[in-house]
Amino acid sequence: MSDFSNSLQTAVSGMRAQSTRLRHVSENIANTDTPGYRRKVMNFEQVTKDGAKTGEVRSAGISLDRTELARIFDPAHPMSNEDGYYDGSNVDLVVEIADAREAQRSYEANLKMFEQTRKMSSKLLELLRK
């Protein structure tokens, strides 16, 4: 049964990591037009126990994308400088949509793994009862 619980823990860690990633992608999309906003990028790391990799993943923190902010010309904007420019955000909507789709598909794959492991363990218990 230990293998089943390890598989379930691995799937749950993947779902948890991807849901966190999707939350940050959503924040990026919501702040596409926010002046001075820098895109958040989630980093992952493998979980180790006693020096051995468990197969689980977790968030290794959030970093800010350091690409240049878009320079927007709008002399009427309250944040514009004397030349009429202000810093926009560095969020690319196409990249964020692709990241959201990738996180969704990875979440679904982990969910399928969780469901299959649960089904296999229930079938094993049925066999052991007989």
Rank of each mutant, 00 (worst) to 15 (best):
G88Y: 10
P78S: 06
A30M: 08
A100C: 01
Q104L: 12
H24W: 11
M120Q: 12
Y86F: 15
L8F: 07
Q116K: 01
M120K: 04
S7I: 00
D83A: 15
S2M: 14
A70C: 05
R16I: 08
E27W: 00
D3C: 02
T34V: 14
V12F: 13
A11I: 00
E45D: 05
G36M: 04
E56H: 03
Q18L: 04
G61C: 00
Q9L: 13
L111E: 07
D99Y: 01
L124P: 01
R71V: 04
R66T: 12
G61A: 03
N31E: 13
G88S: 15
R39D: 06
R105V: 09
Y85D: 06
F4M: 14
M42F: 01
M113T: 14
I62A: 03
R39P: 03
A70P: 03
S122I: 09
N43L: 13
E45Y: 06
Y86E: 06
I97G: 06
I97Q: 14
L93F: 12
V47H: 07
L93P: 10
V94H: 11
L64I: 02
V41I: 15
N43K: 13
E102K: 10
D99Q: 10
D3R: 11
Q116D: 01
K119H: 09
D50A: 02
V47R: 08
D83C: 00
L8W: 07
V91S: 02
Q9N: 14
L22D: 07
F4T: 13
V12T: 13
Y37R: 11
E56G: 03
D92T: 12
Q9R: 14
S13A: 12
G61D: 06
S122K: 15
F114K: 08
A70K: 15
S80N: 02
D3V: 12
T34N: 10
Y85P: 09
P35E: 05
R101M: 09
K112Q: 10
T67H: 11
V47C: 01
M15I: 01
E108A: 12
N6R: 14
T54M: 04
S7P: 02
P35H: 05
R23I: 03
V47W: 01
M1V: 09
S89E: 07
M120P: 00
V94S: 14
G51K: 06
I29C: 04
V41N: 08
R39G: 05
F4G: 04
K119Q: 14
H24R: 13
V12E: 08
N81D: 15
G51T: 06
S5Q: 12
D87F: 10
R39T: 08
D92E: 15
Q104C: 08
Y37G: 07
T48V: 09
G84Q: 10
T32Y: 02
A30C: 09
R58C: 00
S26F: 06
A76V: 02
K49Q: 15
S80P: 02
S2E: 13
Y107W: 05
S13W: 05
I62P: 05
R16N: 14
S13R: 09
Y86G: 06
Y86P: 06
K49Y: 02
P78C: 07
V91M: 04
V95F: 11
R23H: 04
N81W: 07
G61W: 00
E68P: 05
A11P: 07
S5C: 00
T117L: 02
Q104H: 09
E27Q: 15
Q46S: 14
S26I: 05
S13K: 10
S7E: 01
F4I: 11
R105E: 01
T34I: 09
